[in-house]
Design a protein around this nucleic acid. Sequence first.
DNA 1: TTGACAATAGACCGATCTGTCTATATTGTC
DNA 2: GACAATATAGACAGATCGGTCTATTGTCAA
Lengths: 192, 192
Amino acid sequence: MPQKPRKRAKTSEVGVRDRLLDAADRLFYREGVRAVGIDRVLAEADAAKASLYQHFGCKDQLVASYLERRTGDARASIEAYLADTPPSQRGLKFFDWVVEWAESKDFRGCPLQHTVSELIDPAHPARAIAHGQREWFTERFREWTTAAGVKDAKATARALVVLFDGAVAGSEVDGPQRASDARWMAKKLLAG
Amino acid sequence: MPQKPRKRAKTSEVGVRDRLLDAADRLFYREGVRAVGIDRVLAEADAAKASLYQHFGCKDQLVASYLERRTGDARASIEAYLADTPPSQRGLKFFDWVVEWAESKDFRGCPLQHTVSELIDPAHPARAIAHGQREWFTERFREWTTAAGVKDAKATARALVVLFDGAVAGSEVDGPQRASDARWMAKKLLAG
DNA sequence: TTGACAATAGACCGATCTGTCTATATTGTC
DNA sequence: GACAATATAGACAGATCGGTCTATTGTCAA
């Protein structure tokens, strides 16, 4: 009988792959992907080195998987946050989400920006993830500005991307005030 | 006779300290301060290891000195760029400078943002440099918005900081279009 | 019980990292 | 020429890096 689902249990209730991703997420986001070595991830995940290479093949792929899950979770979080907001007001409401993120205890800036700036190889698998997330953002901003009925919706959407990047990058060095500043301007922009 | 200026000549016409800083600037900015090791800097500068530690003491100090010179040069470049522009229009003109920077061949994003995100130690000497440059920017924006005569000059100045950060961070991943987008919004903001 | 599979533990490899050290060469001043 | 200062060249140390490997343990299904 070929390959039943094969239950996963072991001593812990969560699989080693998820533990590795959890550990990588915490450490890579907090300290950067170059500053954190494999051994640190293994210790944090309480896992064996062979498990990491069995599931991810190499560190670069672990980095890409870390980013992939981060961005997926972010999309889900944003969509849930905006679900009860009418489409015409989602553009502004999104910046409430950004403010909350910037004010959260573990906020450390944008994981995409950090990773792209640390890994200059244009063929690195993490770059494709980052690119995909950027496109998703661009598309959402287009939707929101169109729904808001502003004139020049495309240019406004591009401007909101700039505001978002500025909010996140600025909050990392100056504190969450920058996110509020971005929201202030987004409100102006979406009013007209 | 204690300590005459003591001419510096040697085989090359530029001192080893400047050669080290030039090499560090190129490599650190292009690839990041963690990705580039001491040996790479020494080879690029054609200098000896003892010279580096004689002049800078440790790598962290070299990083701080690299940032210090970068930011000093940036200030001079900006001030020269704006010298012929009347104060009331400097806020917008500044974003022309940003666009030109983002379009330049070697543009790789903001060295301050990169370094701060790579070195999480709050006591790292490079952080003080970054903080100083951020304050300088904030002060200039305050001047420019005040001179432009916009109402709510302080809030507008903070918004321009966000636009600047977004222009630079966005241009790094999406290309210089983001800097133009930021300029577009700055124009709107400074018009009213 | 047995065998397949997934996980752990950790030795090991070669490379690279920051930093220290000794030894030598070059330079300008006396 | 002698001296002090500054530079170079490079061995060396101790730690860490990513990655491979062997050996062992624990779990489940037949």
